[in-house]
Design a protein around this nucleic acid. Structure first.
Lengths: 247, 247
DNA sequence: CTTGACCTTGACGCAGCGTCAACGTCTAGC
DNA sequence: GCTAGACGTTGACGCTGCGTCAAGGTCAAG
């Protein structure tokens, strides 16, 4: 009893293309090949195919399946390994889902993706264009709403904190302290906390924090606040060191 | 202020290859291209890159990211869609994990992947070779253990059920009943249940059930039990009809 | 002038087939 | 005996997002 490629495909619920593929990779060679080149399969091939399809439904890769059906690996071992990998994938997905959810929440809550870090305590409206380009229009509007929602006292507090940080950075640079030394890193810790206030609820990750430091260097409007290009580079280095150690 | 491709790659935590790729697909063209062909990026490009990388960390595809950063789609919309897809993927993974878990359990419990269906109530040792080829050595051993673990009464019950099913199929065929008619399908329901007993706890899925029917036709040792090739084809058709409607 | 770091443009590889394309073969009906 | 139509064959590209050579220019420092 033997069947053509289409017949086998039908009864096994797959396609002839798949069977040809399995032949190509040596996973399931046809039982016989006619003089016309046609592939023919018998019951042995059919049962082998069914084992293959079963394992594939469980998500195993074709090389792994080959190991199993060729008897080089026990079913249980292969499946256990596979299960480990599936669980890892699930973990990854879960983390990503949580990230996306909190990101959406932040946007809906008006916090808007790292917009606030741009409001370095100054008249933030002057950065409107740049913020919009950088983070989108909603970002600017949301950040603006947030900043405006602060009481005068809160605003002053926020600005004063930042001025203190700037001043301490400047002093440290003046005094020749290393950017990655403990003293400067203590300032950077406050800097990080200060930024986190603007992010209400979360913190920047390492990459974001480092990127922000780069922007201080890249944009002299920010650089000016940290003592020009020199100061900006110093602060950037301090931030990078902080990110590397703590983030 | 502009940077070379490597510099941008370093501060953004990605690779130059990725940046070239983003250039190739038009997602992030360099700000300037030197006469030597070198790519140079400025702050605008850097901030755009950071938006891109942030979205990519959330798992969005590059085309979707392009939609967002080019302002053709709102952040929230894109992320909400993405979240839906992530949840679906998680569902899929969960189902697959459960499948693999139960499969492993079945194997450990000695039930062993559809081995029992081969023991069509007869002296199953005569099928040893075939079962081993079909489902692996453990499958035979496990099925054997299972069958042997039954009490004499249970064995008789099991065999008697099957004989009844065979007899009823034969009578229906004799009477010219259609394989997909209600009467025959009622027999097939019992047939399905009978097989499920051997599977203790789960049932064959549509593909497996249909495949089993095909084997009755393919292998005359089984076919004989259902009234030769005629009977086997009839049973196979009934099983296929059942699978299509109920599985 | 050399060395080494950095830049460029191809192009293959991966997983698992879907999907043409271009072209033989088989079967049934006229 | 011919023809239509179903089915078979072997390529080969496409998809996702780059990693990874390969072969060869460019640039800054010694």
């Amino acid at each position: 009893m033997e069947w053509s490629i289409q017949e086998i495909a039908r009864v096994s619920g797959t396609t002839s293309r798949t069977l040809r593929h399995y032949d190509d990779i040596g996973l399931l060679p046809p039982t016989r090949i006619g003089s016309n080149g046609y592939r023919y399969y018998d019951e042995h091939a059919l049962t082998r195919l069914q084992r293959i399809l079963l394992l594939r439904e469980l998500g195993l890769g074709l090389p792994a399946i080959a190991e199993v059906v060729d008897g080089h690996q026990a079913n249980a071992d292969a499946l256990t390994n596979h299960l480990r990998w599936l669980r890892q994938e699930k973990e990854r997905l879960d983390r990503q889902i949580r990230s996306v959810e909190t990101t959406i929440l932040k946007m809906e809550g008006g916090e808007q993706l790292m917009a606030e870090e741009m409001f370095d305590g100054f008249d933030h409206t002057q950065y409107r264009e740049e913020v919009e380009e950088r983070w989108g229009k909603e970002a600017y509007a949301a950040g603006d709403r947030w900043y405006r929602s602060l009481s005068a006292e809160q605003k002053n507090r926020f600005r004063q904190d930042q001025l203190d940080i700037q001043r301490d950075y400047a002093a440290a640079l003046e005094a020749g302290k290393p950017a990655d030394g403990d003293e400067v890193q203590a300032i950077t810790q406050r800097h990080f906390d200060w930024i986190s206030v603007g992010w209400r609820g979360t913190h920047p990750n390492a990459q974001q924090f480092v990127g922000l430091g780069e922007m201080y260097v890249a944009d002299d409007r920010f650089g000016a606040n940290y003592g020009g290009i020199e100061g900006a580079r110093f602060v950037r280095d301090a931030m990078a060191a902080y990110a590397e150690r703590k983030l």
